[in-house]
């Protein structure tokens, strides 16, 4: 199996990762190695960071998803996966390329935002928000218009200025409704979880290899019933830093690994160099009508 490219890292994996572009860089040793193997139920001297996750003093993390498996993630980039019997490949990749990717970022002092992102005018534009706010749905609509997908769920920021995104992979997690609303069919797509009406939609031609400047961040919010929909730029840097803290992927892991300061600095850099907007819309508002407004805002 050929090595893959994930956020600039060379990945050698015993598990097929069709989401990733092929590694075409130099012949360095792999940055991340994924193996199948036994993983103990708990980390010696590990402490529970969240209900299904432990971290130990070496910075190693253990994620346990009851019906999927255990993932041991060492600082060295060595990842061991012990799948549960019956777990599907897609389920294992869901957590490997989600929670585990987030943990790798925190171990390496990179800021992961909980965001989907696409390319607009040669730069990355990120959409942040809670589950259900429409991050992936917006990314899908842009992808259908020919915009490359930079990331889904975990948007990894490079260290240093100017702010740049390390592209992950062009896969979107979408509910049946979002797929059908875009006049597509979930037929033949892998399910996010067994029996779930949420699917993995891959745009393999739409991947991005190299880091991209981050041009804008949109915070997706629900407009209250009597409030107007619209896009509004946030101006106070401290408000932006606070908002971005809430949009950080698994911030508790960063805190547990002592990365609080570098995370703060990364968010402060974003706040002072990248425009951050709130996009308020009614729940279930059709995504299509926002695409042009988003592009126009980015070009302002």
């Amino acid at each position: 199996m050929t090595d893959g490219l994930l956020c600039g890292w060379r990945v050698r994996s015993a598990i097929a990762l069709p989401e990733l572009l092929e590694w075409q860089g130099d012949d360095r040793p792999p940055d991340l190695t994924v193996r199948l193997g036994e993983v103990d139920e708990s980390l010696p001297q590990g402490r529970a960071i969240s209900p299904f996750l432990q971290i130990d003093s070496t910075g190693a993390g253990l994620l346990q998803v009851p019906m999927v498996g255990r993932f041991l993630v060492r600082q060295s980039g060595d990842i061991t996966v012990a799948p549960q019997p019956g777990a599907s490949d897609a389920e294992i990749r869901l957590f490997l390329l989600g929670s585990v990717l987030g943990m790798v970022c925190h171990q390496r002092g990179l800021l992961p935002l909980h965001a989907s992102s696409v390319v607009i005018d040669g730069g990355a534009v990120a959409f942040c928000g809670h589950s259900g706010m429409g991050k992936s749905t917006l990314a899908l609509r842009f992808a259908r218009r020919g915009h490359a997908v930079v990331s889904d769920d975990v948007c990894v920021l490079d260290n240093g200025a100017p702010a740049r995104v390390r592209p992950s992979f062009p896969r979107l997690k979408l509910w049946r409704d979002a797929i059908e609303d875009a006049a597509l069919s979930p037929e033949g797509l892998e399910r996010n979880r067994r029996g779930q009406e949420k699917f993995h939609f891959l745009e393999p031609e739409a991947g991005v290899r190299d880091p991209l400047p981050l041009r804008a961040i949109f915070l997706l919010r629900r407009a209250s019933l009597d409030a107007k929909e619209g896009i509004e730029r946030l101006s106070a840097p401290l408000d932006i830093v606070a908002a971005l803290e809430a949009e950080t992927f698994r911030p508790e892991i960063g805190r547990a690994l002592g990365a609080e300061r570098s995370l703060f600095q990364a968010r402060a850099l974003l706040a002072s160099t990248v425009p951050v907007y709130q996009l308020r819309r009614q729940p279930d508002a059709p995504p299509e009508r926002w695409l042009d407004a988003i592009v126009a805002t980015v070009r302002e």
Partner: peptide, 10 residues
């Protein structure tokens, strides 16, 4: 508080 998206759980 779970540090996970419930949408990814059974």
């Amino acid at each position: 508080h779970a540090g996970l998206e419930h949408a990814d759980l059974m």
